[in-house]
């Protein structure tokens, strides 16, 4: 034992421990160090991530087809009948179907918001023990993505970019208590602050607080972003599930079901620029 403590091996190991500790302190106090280190790691593992995502999608598709075969057959017969009925109204629904396809491909969003600059991305990695559904996408600073850029799908908001590497970005979701978004009820115009909790995040829910106690907000109402220098306005966030009084009775508190299934989302868009976006880090929570 004494020999080991005096040996070069012990000095190497002690050096490693000091390096680890130093890296943590440097990363904690200066995001720049952490960003470069993780960018290098991300650059190295990206090809393996892309391959494993491609394989994973194939495996998932194979098993879902295998186990859902009979169910798909019944669904197919029912859909066939529905298509026959819809055929008689084909002319009338053509425009609606075209708009729906466009919406699915985000063109609808782009038309309504011509000032948005969008970058398409895919989810390549999920942290198995993240409490808030955090995930990584396959685009980074090389594609123009920056920290605090908003992440959306065709259905609504997913979260914001919390970390950016050269070829990857980490997304902090709406379930995370660190993400505070100023929101309003689309029906009543009442305002509130969206911030998740660990308890709600386990069920894929988030919460809206500081709602005025005279508010007419009800379960089923849609919650949208209020708009700020960080978040574009009128992004759908979720629907009210239930309302309760806040501790102390100073206001109301709502449980919100996000419109996007955050723990299953696969394809997203990142809004890299929009009219009114802050050009510098302002520290605002939105």
């Amino acid at each position: 034992m004494k020999e080991f403590l005096r040996s070069a091996a012990f000095k190497i190991i002690a050096g490693l421990l000091v390096v680890c500790f130093g890296m943590m302190i440097a990363a904690g106090s200066s995001k720049g160090f952490s960003g470069v280190g993780e960018s290098l790691i991300g650059f190295f593992v990206k090809p393996f991530q892309e391959i494993s995502t491609w394989v994973g999608d194939g495996v998932s598709g194979f098993f879902s087809e295998l186990f859902a075969g009979s169910k798909l057959r019944e669904e197919n017969e029912a859909l066939q009948q529905e298509i026959n009925e819809l055929r008689s109204q084909l002319t009338e629904y053509d425009n609606a179907l075209r708009e729906n396809e466009n919406y699915k491909d985000y063109l609808g969003l782009a038309k309504e918001n011509p000032d948005w600059k969008l970058v398409a991305a895919s989810v390549v990695e999920r942290d198995p023990i993240s409490a808030y559904g955090e995930f990584k996408i396959n685009k980074g600073s090389l594609q123009g993505i920056k920290e605090r850029d908003v992440v959306i799908t065709a259905d609504g908001m997913v979260g914001v970019i919390s970390q950016v590497g050269w070829t990857y970005s980490t997304v902090e979701t709406l379930l995370d208590p660190n993400l505070n978004v100023g929101c309003i009820c689309s029906r009543t115009g009442d305002t509130g602050l969206l911030a998740g909790t660990m308890l709600l995040a386990a069920d894929g829910l988030t919460s809206l607080s500081y709602i005025d106690k005279t508010s007419g907000i009800q379960p089923g109402d849609y919650i949208i972003t209020g708009g700020s220098e960080l978040f574009p306005a009128r992004l759908v966030v979720g629907r009210v599930q239930k309302i309760s009084s806040e501790d102390g009775g100073s206001g109301l508190h709502a449980v919100i079901t996000p419109v996007v299934d955050i723990k299953r989302v696969q394809e997203v868009m990142v809004i890299t620029d929009f009219y009114g976006k802050a050009k510098e880090e302002s520290g605002l929570q939105g």
Binding site: C20, F21, G22, S34, E38, V45, D127, S162
Partner: peptide, 15 residues
């Protein structure tokens, strides 16, 4: 990198 923790956190534990 995978768990998005501070760089060096799991490295220290693992060492």
């Amino acid at each position: 990198y995978a768990c998005n923790t501070l760089l060096g956190y799991f490295a220290l534990f693992f060492v």
